[in-house]
Computed example of a mutant assay.
Amino acid sequence: MNMGSRGFTLIEMLIVLLVVLLIVSFLPFLLDIRWLHDKPLNRFNHLEWQVFLQQLKSEIRESKQLESDQAVMYAYKPTGEKVSFEKYGSLIRRRVNDQGNEVVLQSVSDVRYELAQNGVRIIVVTTEGKRYEAFVSTFFPIKVKQP
Rank of each mutant, 00 (worst) to 15 (best):
G89K: 11
Q117M: 08
R93A: 12
Q106Y: 04
D32L: 10
E59H: 10
V83I: 15
E48C: 03
G119D: 13
K82E: 10
L56E: 00
K87M: 15
E62V: 00
L47I: 06
D38S: 13
T138Q: 07
R43N: 13
T138A: 07
T126W: 06
R112H: 14
V19A: 11
M13K: 04
L91T: 01
Y74G: 00
F140H: 12
R95D: 06
T138H: 03
S90L: 13
H37D: 05
E59C: 03
D98C: 01
S109F: 06
S84I: 00
P141Y: 02
E81R: 07
L47P: 00
V125N: 08
T127D: 04
M73V: 14
Y132W: 15
Q99R: 08
S137C: 02
L47K: 07
A75P: 09
L22V: 11
V51I: 09
F52C: 02
V24L: 15
L22W: 03
E48R: 10
V108P: 12
R93H: 12
K57N: 12
K143W: 05
I60T: 10
L36M: 12
S107K: 03
V144D: 03
E62A: 08
V96Q: 15
L91A: 08
N45D: 13
V20F: 07
I60W: 09
G4I: 09
H46G: 00
V104E: 00
Y74M: 05
V144T: 14
Q70Y: 07
N118H: 05
E114G: 04
D38V: 09
W49N: 07
Y113M: 04
L66C: 11
D110P: 01
V72A: 02
L14N: 05
P40W: 10
Q50K: 13
A71S: 15
I122G: 04
